[in-house]
Simulated scan of single mutants.
Amino acid sequence: MSAAVGVLIVDEPQDLCPTVRATLEHLPELQTLHEADLAETELERLVALVFIDERRIGNGLAEIGALRERQPRLRILAAFQALTGADLGALLAAGTDAVIARSGSPRDLCAAILALAAGQDCLYPPSAELQAETGEALGLTPREAEVLRFLSAGFSNKEVARRLALSVRTVETHRLNLRRKTQTGRLKDLVTLARQLGLAPVLEEPRPARH
């Protein structure tokens, strides 16, 4: 069975650089597909590359939701030109696994597809421009960003409070603010967001809860 990654291209813009399409079609590790091919393909790893039109983001969100419902095994990568924090939260809530800026090189885009197919939920490659824009749009304070860094690593409120020398109630307040600003509380989304903001990972593993 082929080890290639099947790629479904959705809402391809007319002004897409021809080099992008050529790279997707000719890179040996990738195999472009039509949605009708998905039911019959023997490829185990499938990624939908959805191009987001920020002027009609509702259409993109609906497309992602429909893809997620019709093809649960698809991993979804959203490509965009300009993305606000609110847009990012909406994309994650709709079922997007990762996002990437269209301004990246074709090789970067292909690398993102391969990384996502390998199980990574992250922005690839990291974009300083997106990090700054997303953090500013979300309005995270430095303390909220630090709390997010620990929460995304799986630490409990109590563990976060101990490591940051805060009260548990304060951490709970920060967590509520994060939920309000990001419109999500799911660990998967917090992990993605922390990586997209360039927050350094917490290397120490969270300690198991005592019973």
Rank of each mutant, 00 (worst) to 15 (best):
M1S: 10
G6V: 04
V7T: 07
L8A: 04
I9M: 10
V10G: 07
E12T: 13
D15F: 06
D15E: 12
L16H: 03
C17G: 10
T19N: 10
L24H: 07
H26W: 08
L27D: 14
P28D: 06
L30V: 14
Q31E: 11
Q31I: 10
L33I: 02
A36K: 13
A39G: 05
T41G: 05
T41S: 15
T41N: 09
R45W: 01
A48W: 02
A48P: 04
F51E: 06
D53S: 12
R55E: 11
R56A: 13
G58R: 10
Q71G: 02
P72W: 08
L74K: 00
A79N: 03
F80V: 03
Q81S: 12
Q81G: 12
T84Q: 09
T84N: 02
G85W: 00
D87Y: 10
L88Y: 13
L88S: 09
L91T: 02
L91S: 09
L92A: 10
T96Y: 02
D97E: 07
A98M: 09
I100V: 12
A101F: 06
S105M: 13
R107H: 12
D108T: 00
L109A: 08
A112W: 00
L116S: 01
A117R: 03
A117L: 02
A117T: 13
G119Y: 06
Y124A: 01
P125N: 09
S127G: 01
A132Y: 10
E136D: 08
E136N: 11
L138W: 13
L140F: 14
T141L: 09
T141F: 00
P142T: 05
R143T: 14
V147S: 05
L148E: 09
R149V: 10
F150L: 13
F150C: 07
F150S: 04
F155W: 01
K158C: 05
A161H: 01
A161P: 00
R163P: 00
R163W: 11
L166E: 01
S167C: 07
V168S: 07
V168H: 09
R169A: 14
V171M: 06
E172I: 08
E172G: 15
R175E: 13
R175M: 08
R175C: 04
L176C: 05
N177F: 01
L178E: 01
R180M: 13
R180G: 06
K181M: 05
T182H: 00
T184Y: 06
T184V: 07
G185L: 06
L187G: 04
L187D: 10
L187M: 14
K188Y: 03
D189Q: 15
L193K: 08
L193D: 00
G198F: 10
A200S: 14
P201C: 11
P201N: 14
R207H: 04
P208D: 08
R210F: 09
